[in-house]
Each structure stands twice: as C-alpha cells, then as structure tokens.
Amino acid sequence: SPQLSSEIENLMSQGYSYQDIQKALVIAQNNIEMAKNILREFVSIS
C-alpha cells in the first residue's frame, strides 16, 4: 500500500535496513505500528 511504502521509506531514513523492516512487518503481520515497536526494541541503528 502507498501508506506502507512511505512508512518504510521513513524508517529507512531513520537508519533501519529494508531487510529488518520487512522482517518486522512479517512478525507484526503488516501492522506498521507494531513493526515500529519491534524495530525500536530489537534493532540497533548503527
């Protein structure tokens, strides 16, 4: 969805990798808010 694409772009601009974002979305069943929480908790931005 376009909204999801812009959310993904936004997260990538914050330093998350596309791969990590995709993984979080799978775990969160495409719930972007939950995916963000997963990324915040489990992915360290280098």
Rank of each mutant, 00 (worst) to 15 (best):
S5L: 13
A28V: 00
I38C: 13
N10G: 13
I45D: 15
V26M: 08
L39G: 05
S6W: 04
M12I: 12
A35W: 00
K36T: 07
Q29D: 15
S44T: 12
S5E: 05
E9T: 11
I32H: 10
S13G: 10
E7Q: 07
I27W: 07
E33F: 04
L39H: 03
A24Q: 03
S44C: 04
L4R: 08
A24W: 00
I27M: 15
N10V: 11
Y18D: 12
Q14T: 06
P2S: 11
I45Q: 12
E7Y: 07
R40W: 02
Q19E: 11
I32R: 11
I32M: 10
N10R: 11
S6H: 09
N31T: 01
S5Q: 08
N31P: 01
L11V: 00
R40A: 10
Q3L: 10
G15N: 02
K36C: 00
L39N: 09
P2Q: 10
E9C: 13
I38E: 14
I45T: 14
S5H: 04
S1L: 03
D20S: 11
D20Q: 13
I21W: 00
Y16P: 03
K36L: 01
Q14L: 11
I45N: 15
Q3P: 04
N30E: 04
M12T: 07
V26K: 13
L25D: 04
K36F: 02
A24R: 02
P2N: 10
A28N: 08
S13C: 14
S46I: 00
S1M: 01
M12F: 06
S46E: 11
Y18H: 04
I38T: 13
L4T: 09
I8S: 02
I32G: 09
E9F: 11
L39S: 04
E9A: 13
E9G: 12
K36D: 05
E41Y: 02
M12D: 03
I8D: 00
E41Q: 10
N37C: 07
D20Y: 01
N37A: 04
Q3V: 09
Y16W: 09
Q22C: 05
D20G: 04
M34V: 12
R40P: 15
N31S: 07
A24S: 09
A24K: 03
P2Y: 07
E33C: 10
S5R: 12
E41I: 04
A35G: 06
S46K: 15
Y16H: 12
D20L: 09
E33N: 08
D20E: 13
V43M: 15
I27N: 15
V43C: 08
Q22D: 12
Q3I: 09
Q3G: 09
N31A: 00
Q29F: 01
Q19S: 12
S17I: 14
E33K: 10
Q29L: 01
K36I: 04
S6Y: 05
I27A: 14
A24Y: 03
N31R: 10
L4V: 12
K23W: 14
V26C: 13
E41R: 11
E9S: 13
G15S: 04
L11H: 01
I45G: 15
E7I: 04
L11S: 03
S1I: 03
I27E: 15
I8F: 08
S46R: 13
L11R: 02
N31M: 05
N37M: 01
R40F: 06
I21E: 01
R40H: 14
I38G: 07
A35T: 10
S1V: 11
Y16D: 02
F42V: 14
S46C: 04
E9K: 07
M12P: 02
E41W: 04
N10F: 14
P2L: 11
E9I: 10
I8Q: 02
S1Q: 09
P2R: 09
E9V: 07
I38V: 12
I8M: 05
A35I: 01
S6A: 07
L25A: 03
Q29V: 02
N37R: 09
L11I: 09
N37H: 13
A24D: 00
K23P: 00
A24M: 03
E41M: 02
G15H: 05
S13P: 03
K36E: 08
I38S: 12
Q3W: 05
Q3F: 10
K36W: 00
D20K: 05
P2E: 15
Y18A: 08
L4D: 08
S1G: 04
S46Q: 14
S17T: 07
A35P: 03
N10Y: 11
D20I: 04
Y18L: 11
Q19K: 06
F42D: 15
Q19T: 09
L39E: 05
S44R: 09
Q14R: 05
A24F: 00
Q14V: 08
S6P: 07
S17F: 04
S13Y: 05
I32K: 05
E33W: 04
D20N: 08
I21A: 07
K23D: 13
Y18F: 02
S46D: 14
N10A: 10
